[in-house]
Amino acid sequence: MDVLYLLVPLSVVLVLLVIAGMWWAIDRGQFEDIDQEGERILRSD
């Protein structure tokens, strides 16, 4: 039962890190043009 005192705060911190990472990626424009990135592999330079 004592392990819950460690796991619950760690899981909350992990969720906050994931949310912060998603916010950072959206703010930096990582998801602006997903289709173009998939087609970039098929084009030869």
Rank of each mutant, 00 (worst) to 15 (best):
D27K: 15
Q36F: 04
W24Y: 14
V8N: 04
P9G: 02
S11F: 08
V13I: 15
L10I: 07
L10R: 09
L16R: 07
Q36I: 09
D45F: 14
V3Y: 10
I34V: 14
L17R: 04
E37Q: 14
W23E: 04
M22I: 13
L14Y: 09
L14P: 01
G38I: 07
I19D: 01
L4M: 09
I26C: 04
V3Q: 11
I19C: 06
V12P: 00
L4N: 04
M22R: 12
D35C: 04
V15Y: 01
S11G: 04
P9F: 00
G21M: 03
R40I: 05
Y5H: 11
D45W: 14
P9T: 00
W24P: 02
L17G: 09
E39W: 07
A25C: 08
L16T: 05
V3M: 12
E39H: 07
Q36N: 06
L4D: 03
E32L: 12
R40N: 03
L10M: 12
L6E: 12
G38T: 03
D45K: 14
Q30E: 11
Y5C: 05
L4F: 10
L10T: 02
W23D: 05
L42V: 09
Q36D: 09
D35Y: 08
D33E: 07
V13F: 07
M1E: 10
G38C: 06
V15D: 00
V3G: 00
G38V: 10
D2V: 10
I19F: 06
F31E: 02
R43C: 00
R43D: 03
L17V: 10
